[in-house]
Design a protein around this nucleic acid. Sequence first.
DNA 1: AATGAATGAGCTTTCATTCAT
DNA 2: AATGAATGAAAGCTCATTCAT
Lengths: 212, 212, 212, 212
Amino acid sequence: VKGVFKIYKKFENLDEEKKNRIINASLEEFSRKGYAGASTNEIVKRAGISKGLLFHYFENKKYLFKYLTDYCIEVTMKDFYERIDNDETDLFEKIKNIMVIKAELLDKYPAIFKFIEVAYLDSSPEAHEIMENRSQEVLNSSIARVFTNIDTSRFKDGFDLEKVINLVLWSLEGYATAEMNKAKLTSTDVDYKKLFEGVDVYINLLKQSFYK
Amino acid sequence: VKGVFKIYKKFENLDEEKKNRIINASLEEFSRKGYAGASTNEIVKRAGISKGLLFHYFENKKYLFKYLTDYCIEVTMKDFYERIDNDETDLFEKIKNIMVIKAELLDKYPAIFKFIEVAYLDSSPEAHEIMENRSQEVLNSSIARVFTNIDTSRFKDGFDLEKVINLVLWSLEGYATAEMNKAKLTSTDVDYKKLFEGVDVYINLLKQSFYK
Amino acid sequence: VKGVFKIYKKFENLDEEKKNRIINASLEEFSRKGYAGASTNEIVKRAGISKGLLFHYFENKKYLFKYLTDYCIEVTMKDFYERIDNDETDLFEKIKNIMVIKAELLDKYPAIFKFIEVAYLDSSPEAHEIMENRSQEVLNSSIARVFTNIDTSRFKDGFDLEKVINLVLWSLEGYATAEMNKAKLTSTDVDYKKLFEGVDVYINLLKQSFYK
Amino acid sequence: VKGVFKIYKKFENLDEEKKNRIINASLEEFSRKGYAGASTNEIVKRAGISKGLLFHYFENKKYLFKYLTDYCIEVTMKDFYERIDNDETDLFEKIKNIMVIKAELLDKYPAIFKFIEVAYLDSSPEAHEIMENRSQEVLNSSIARVFTNIDTSRFKDGFDLEKVINLVLWSLEGYATAEMNKAKLTSTDVDYKKLFEGVDVYINLLKQSFYK
DNA sequence: AATGAATGAGCTTTCATTCAT
DNA sequence: AATGAATGAAAGCTCATTCAT
């Protein structure tokens, strides 16, 4: 319990079980209906608490949303950085490492990931205001921290390395997104094994082009 | 005015000026607040029409949203296909052609593009139901229609061409998105000239790798 | 076309087919939803005419309701008096005669009867205002006209004849209502044959008591 | 407060004064305008409560109507059965007893009786659905419970007693209804003394016919 | 005569939030 | 801390009626 959460002291002091009931009920409702569509009535019903209590803890809907945002980023980021292999120097292995971690987190915290996605894309002014800086800040810091340590000697000479790395990143992100969309469309769960097999084909293509 | 719009006969027969007032007011309100947050009250106020009239035309909020979706896709698609250069056989030129068109359309119809984005990402059940099939249908048909005609003889032999094209597409999309985000963050208008200059660097990189 | 209908000149001059379409649509809607619940929108839709036209003919909802009331009473009353056997002098035969006619009319004009019932029982102020005097006026005149001519010599002496006739009337009305309710409850159509067979038992009981 | 009312717990726990204000305001509005015509706006205004509160208690208009129906039947039935003389074995005295009680109840709860009548006769689908079974169920149980205990030895032999009782019931009901209508027409309050004097004439007529 | 677009008051209902207990 | 009754603004939508054509 630190930093960002000071305003929510009352809530943070609750026993874990109740906290989780409230968090999960809120995540689900916001995820399903977006910021404006979400009903605090539904949340308290699902969480099994009284109307007044929710506002006792969070003051209003917007702050509840803000709390959830902070909470979700905190949880996922912490887990993410703990798992990342800082000694990996091969660009492609690093990216694969990240993809695997992302997939595992998505499996471990599906509700949280869904909420982050919804919150990030929500177009209500309140959600916008809250997400504005957070997302970019997080993204930037992470990319920077992650892509230090890359062994540049493996690349063919004469390339602008930053640009090559960008290309590789965009390509593999494109691959992941395309596969995710395919899964969404057929409403099947994402098959991570296949996902990683598929990515190797593209990685080989890219290696052929950019590695010595 | 055809096909999809038959259900909205009453509205389609209006004079352009009034139609546009209503469409613009609606697009803006939905874009700013999302489906659930948007207020039909606000829309009629901004459009300068009576409350009853909006429902006379569209029956309910959901159908209004559906109309706007259809309208926006219709307008942009039509314009898009009229501008596309069907004789272009070079993959990179084709993609650049598409990027230019997209940029021009974005400039010409900012409200429409904003709405499409918001509609596509909205998490309210009603918006989801409406967008479900539309988006994918559009996407698929367009990609198929656009990437016929590519001269494959220019590529180095031994590559799986479909995969190479995917890589190129994902890369350049990644570039465009990154630049857009940068612009959004600094709240400056997108400078298309710089955008296209920038892309050439990446195109050259890719050509070096995949062209003979 | 006479008397009561002068105000509705415009409507009365219509061709029968269209008039009937409008009347039937209106009767059905009012019957199903009552005065307040009935929707002029539904009526014009069902009648296949424009919104404006209905108000062109009837000025407003209340006057339409009034027209229908007048129309229904006119139609049924006329038919009723044409069929009644003025030469019948036996009280019980007369009442049976009336019951038969009522049953036939109910069969011939089910929509009209339903409307009269609904209109009579409706509790909205507008319906009340319209029905107030009409119903009682009709009832009184009819009873008076119908029960002239009765051969009083058949009754046992010493009875107050008016009171005996009342008793007989109330009894048989009670029987009819009870049977109707039974039919309504089991949702079967009224079986008139059985109805008239059943009434004879009661008539015999009453004859035993009051006839010489 | 039992059985039927469990769904309306929130409302039932109110202090009597407020409960009555809401019940009376509702009864009056529904009685005057019928189900469809009644305005929840009007009700809350008259009851002196906020708009939201009514729906907090009753969820929607239909359930409010249902509550009132249950409430009215409960109140009148309870009072009715408490007053009825179960030791009376003479048919005519029993009927007179019932008429007296009905008249007293009508005097004691005029609004409730008016509402029951209006609810029973209302032609809106919602009211129908609610009243459908209730009314018959009540009616049946009451008649059965009331007409046990009748001393049948007083009747002339050779009569079908069930039918005779029906005749008597229908007759006296007819009398009561006729007198009520007269009162309604002249808009005077019902004069119960006169009502009961009048009925004796008819009772004597019937006794002469059916008693030994 | 006939249309149906247009109105705006009114409808029932839901909402986030407050507050006495 | 915890409740849930209470609020009233705002929501989406329907209504009878008017009026230019």
